[in-house]
Nucleic acid binder design. Structure first.
Lengths: 225, 225
DNA sequence: CCTCTGTATTTTGTATACAATATGCATTAT
DNA sequence: ATAATGCATATTGTATACAAAATACAGAGG
């Protein structure tokens, strides 16, 4: 049974389909809507106080993002993530994070480098507070700055999509405070390589960083099963 | 003015949204619906003989695939591809084609290798006929077999999406028969490296193959502008 | 006890009605 | 002439109605 309190953030002028899309997306990523849970149009419509039309359009969008799966005439449900599926995502992500950091090396602006230092500091602050949610956000922000520095919006959107798919599991990784010292160190190392614009070094360090996360996520999923 | 004859391939049991989606997708890739052309719901609905509902859902799907762009309360139009956008796609594609061929080296089965030889032969046959459409299909098939050999469906779907976005321009490349000898040679070289399971060699050859196509597409777009 | 079948109910698929917004054009004021 | 205004029209946004299919379940037959 679903007991969560889904509410719409009625930002006035966005079409309802977009508001519903963002709401459901958040709910899936936060785990309020669990993998395998059915997304029934009438139920969601009444819970969100809209008609079925915007719900259906939002589901079509979630579907293309890989967050929902629709079976014709049966309905949609929250996508389940298998160990294999996770491995697949991590495999691609390793490749594209390396591309991203390579491009960032070539294209990052002084302003973006400055921003990255600030974000790195803020990440360390968040770790000192120990609040997992803020740590996760700061970590996301660090990578976001690098993504932006690639000046390749299409790449940014693919990387964001891949991150989204492992989000639920990655948060667990960040709950283990034993990982914090290494994380701080890795971020620092990547940032330094970017500052030197040393592509091989940056790629190597990013590879290690992503590989560590990947290993942790894999371990976590195996533990779950 | 749109004068094309869009007709639905009424495959009975697929929901209309999927039929409409595939129809519009094809029309965009073939160039029947041109970049910047508006996708008006009522017009498409009457042309395809369905109501607005499946049209709208199909548009939401096209949107997430990057083939259409929607401006709220204004409507959707076929996505325009800029030179920059194309460069961005090619950049990612180079990286992921290398990943794909690496994974294929590790995972390709004897059956898939056999299939790849057949497809290579068929590609050469098609080139002898000189029919561009068949050549394009055979070329797509060659890469498809490699994609499948990665055993990573998520990667396959991203690569297909990237290919889709440059499809319109890539066809032009295949119209120039001067490129055929090199294409045949490159396919052969990649296939041999796969057969040897020589990862560095396969990656290097795929890199060259994609780089050639990329260069040609870039040149084509610059000529267009 | 199990399976099959028919029926009521739920849920999705599609069409359509109505509302809100944007657009185009003629008209008016400057 | 040009810009601003208002109205008619076109188009999208949302809700709802109805159709079709899937599902759940009860009862009949083996």
């Amino acid at each position: 049974m679903m007991t969560e309190n889904l509410t719409l953030n009625m930002n006035a002028y966005l079409p309802l389909r977009d508001v519903v899309f963002h709401t459901l997306r958040e709910a899936i990523l936060k785990g309020d809507l669990k993998p395998g849970e059915r997304l029934m149009e009438l139920q969601l419509a009444s819970r969100l106080g809209v008609s079925r039309t915007p719900i259906r359009e939002a589901i079509r969008m979630l579907e293309q993002e890989g967050l929902a799966v629709t079976i014709p005439r049966k309905g949609a449900e929250v996508a389940k993530m298998t160990l294999k599926g996770m491995e697949d995502v991590l495999e691609i992500r390793e490749s594209l994070e390396e591309l991203a950091v390579k491009l960032a090396c070539e294209r990052i602006t002084p302003e973006q480098l400055k921003k990255l230092w600030e974000v790195k500091e803020s990440f360390e602050d968040c770790i000192r507070t120990g609040e997992v949610k803020r740590i996760a956000e700061a970590d996301v922000l660090f990578h976001d700055v690098i993504y932006e520095a690639t000046a390749n919006p299409k790449l940014v959107s693919i990387l964001n999509n891949l991150r989204e798919q492992i989000y639920r599991y990655r948060v667990e990784y960040l709950k283990d405070s034993g990982n914090y010292p290494m994380l701080i160190c890795e971020h620092k190392a990547i940032l330094e390589a970017l500052e030197e614009r040393n592509i091989p070094k940056a790629i190597e360090r990013m590879r290690a960083h992503v590989a560590n996360q990947a290993a942790a996520v894999r371990e976590m999923i195996e533990r779950q099963e």
